[in-house]
Amino acid sequence: MGKTGFLERLQNGGSIVVAEGYIFELERRGYLQAGSFVPEVVLEHPHLVRQLYEEFVHAGSDVVLALTYYAHREKLRVVGRENDLDAMNRAALKMAREVADENDCLMAGNICNSAVFIHSDENTFLPTENIFKEQIEIAVELEADFIVGETFSCFAEAALALKCIQKYGQGLPSVITLSASAGDVLLDGYDTVDACKKLEEAGATVVGLNCGRGPRTMLPLLEKIKQVCSIPIAALPVVYTTSSEEPHFFSLTIPDTKERAFPLDLCSRMCSRKEIEEFGTKANELGIQYVGLCCGNSSNMLRIVAEKYGRTPPASKYSPDMEKHYIYGDKTKFRKEFTEDLMAVKGGKF
C-alpha cells in the first residue's frame, strides 16, 4: 500500500486492517502482569514489543498501533511507575514508527479508558483530559499518522477523548471506538448506536466498537451503527466466543462451571478459526472499513481477517493447506506402505 495516508486508504470504500490485543498477547507470553495490565514490557523487554509489532504486520496489519494502552498516568500510578510515563510512551511510539516505516505501514498513537473518568462527577473531567493530553502530545511529536481513542464504556469519556484529539492532536485523524456493555446502553445511559452517531457529528474520522464483545455479539450491533453513520465504521471484537446468553467477555463462564472466565481463564472460551473466518467475511460484506481483532488476538487469527479482506500478507505463505497432511490430504501423495499401515491401525478410517 506504500506510503498512502490514513484518509486516502479509506477513500472509495477502502479498508484498513488493524492488529490490537498486545496487552493480552504479551501477558500470555509471560511478559506482562494480569491485573494491572500496564505495558511495563515496553521498557523492560523492548525487543519483544518490536517483535510483536513486526509479527502483526507480517500477518497483515496495515497499522502499527503503538503500545501505549494503559501507559497513562493513572495506570502507572497503580504500579508505582508514574515517572516512567514519558519514557514508556516515547519508546513504544518510536519503535512503532520505525517498524511502520520499514514496512510501509501507518503508525497510530493510542489513548484509552482512563480509570479516572466518572460521568456523574465533573471533578474527574479535567484529570481525564490531562491524561489524554499527555499521551496525545507525545504521539504527535513522534509522528503518529492518526490517533486511536478506544474502549470507552461512557459516551461522555469517548466524546472527551475526541475533543482532546482535536485540541491537542494538531489535525490528526481520529478513530473513536466504544466498548458496548452486555446491553446496548453505555454506562452513562447513551444508546451505543446513538453515541456513535453523536461522535460522527462531533467530527470523528472513524467510529465503531472494540473490545468487550466477541464476533457473534458485536456484528448485530455493527449492522445498526452502519445504518445510521455515514463515515467509516470500526470493528475490533475480542477473540472469545460470546453469545446472547453471555454477550460480553466479562460475562463469559468456564465451560461446565459457573465460574467467571475473565480474565485468567478466557483461554477456555477462545474463538475457533472458523468463527474468525466468518467474522472477516461478514464484516467485509457489511462494509466495515476499519477492521481487526482486540483482546485474544494472535497473528494466525489476524491473518484470517486480512485474507478475508483480500490481503495476501507475508504470513499467507504459511496459511493452512491440509492437502499436505498425511491424514487429511490426498493419500496418493504419500508413501503407499505408510498410508496402508495407518489405515489398518485406524480401522480403515481417517
Rank of each mutant, 00 (worst) to 15 (best):
A156L: 11
V291T: 09
K198Q: 14
S230N: 14
G212E: 13
P173T: 03
T68V: 05
E27D: 13
G329N: 07
K346S: 12
F146N: 00
I176D: 06
Q170G: 00
E40Q: 14
K308N: 10
L199P: 00
A161T: 07
L52S: 03
F279P: 02
L26E: 04
F279K: 05
E157A: 11
A71Q: 06
L126Q: 08
T124R: 06
L85C: 13
P39Y: 13
C154I: 05
R29P: 10
G169L: 04
C196F: 05
F155T: 03
T124F: 09
I16A: 03
L106A: 00
S174G: 06
E275L: 09
E20M: 10
I23E: 07
E8L: 02
R50Q: 11
G280D: 07
S114E: 10
F279M: 14
A59M: 08
L221C: 06
V63F: 12
Y69C: 04
K197E: 13
E98Y: 15
F125I: 12
K3E: 07
R213A: 07
L43Y: 09
S298L: 12
A182N: 11
F249M: 12
L222M: 13
E141A: 04
G189A: 09
E44A: 13
F338E: 08
M107R: 13
E82I: 10
D62E: 07
F350E: 11
K349N: 09
E307W: 05
S298Q: 13
M322E: 15
G203E: 04
C164N: 06
D194V: 15
L293R: 12
N110K: 13
K282C: 12
R29C: 08
E307G: 00
E122Q: 14
L266K: 03
N210V: 08
N123A: 06
M322D: 07
D84V: 08
C164L: 04
C105G: 00
P320W: 10
F262E: 05
I225K: 01
T241H: 05
I165S: 01
Q227P: 01
E275S: 10
I288F: 00
E340Q: 02
C164Y: 05
A180R: 11
C196I: 09
E246Q: 01
H58F: 15
L286I: 10
A161P: 06
I327C: 05
F155I: 08
V238L: 02
K282T: 05
V42E: 05
C271V: 10
I327K: 03
F56D: 08
I276G: 02
L32Q: 01
F6L: 01
A34C: 03
